[in-house]
Simulated scan of single mutants.
Amino acid sequence: MDAGNDGATTPVLLNVYDLTPVNDYLYWLGFGVFHSGIEVHGMEYGFGAHDFSSSGVFEVESKCCPGFVYRKTVSLGTTDMSREDFRSFIERLAGKYHGNTYNLIAKNCNHFTDDVCRNLTGKPIPGWVNRLARVGWYHYHICLRTS
């Protein structure tokens, strides 16, 4: 531990945003089209698409991701990583998440937050957050097999 954390644990939070107003109805059925960001040490980290082979990981003020409507925060556990160790971890992980590799079904913002959460807490994000991508992935692969 370093002085940046003084041996204390830090909450790992998932901030979930709506991508469409239809989520007001889909959410209650266990579906929705969501963006998520992971909040640790008071800042939020997400993953988005762009046309370049550089990282698509970005940092924003918590619960204020531009272009999305904040829905809720889910507590995912805690980490004992200091702020400095966490920043180094995110910088290393960002190398796996280039903006031009973003894919709505196979590698989206929710896959990124799930990866961070599993690394920090050993647990996945809640299944409902990325359910539509999993259903799309399943449907896509079933259609390929029957084509």
Rank of each mutant, 00 (worst) to 15 (best):
S53A: 12
S36C: 09
D6L: 03
I90A: 05
F89G: 01
L76R: 08
F86W: 06
V129T: 11
D80R: 15
Y25W: 15
L120H: 07
G56A: 04
A94P: 07
G48S: 04
D80Q: 13
C109S: 15
G37D: 09
L120K: 05
H35L: 07
G127W: 14
K123F: 01
D80W: 04
V74C: 08
E39R: 03
F89N: 01
S75C: 07
I142G: 00
S55M: 12
R83E: 08
I90T: 10
D24V: 13
E91S: 14
R145N: 09
H139C: 15
I142C: 00
C117P: 06
L76N: 09
R145H: 04
Y97H: 10
E91L: 08
K72M: 08
T79Y: 00
L144D: 07
N108Q: 06
L14V: 01
G42N: 11
T78R: 03
N108F: 08
S55R: 14
G127L: 11
G30R: 05
H35G: 06
V129E: 12
K96F: 05
S62H: 06
T146R: 12
P21Q: 10
Y97C: 10
E44K: 00
K96G: 09
F89Y: 13
S75Y: 13
L13T: 02
K72L: 03
A106I: 02
T78N: 07
T9V: 09
R131Q: 03
T79Q: 00
P11I: 13
T79C: 00
C143R: 14
K123Y: 02
L29Q: 06
G136D: 01
Y97S: 05
T73H: 07
V116M: 06
G37E: 06
D80P: 02
A106E: 13
F31I: 03
V22W: 08
W137H: 11
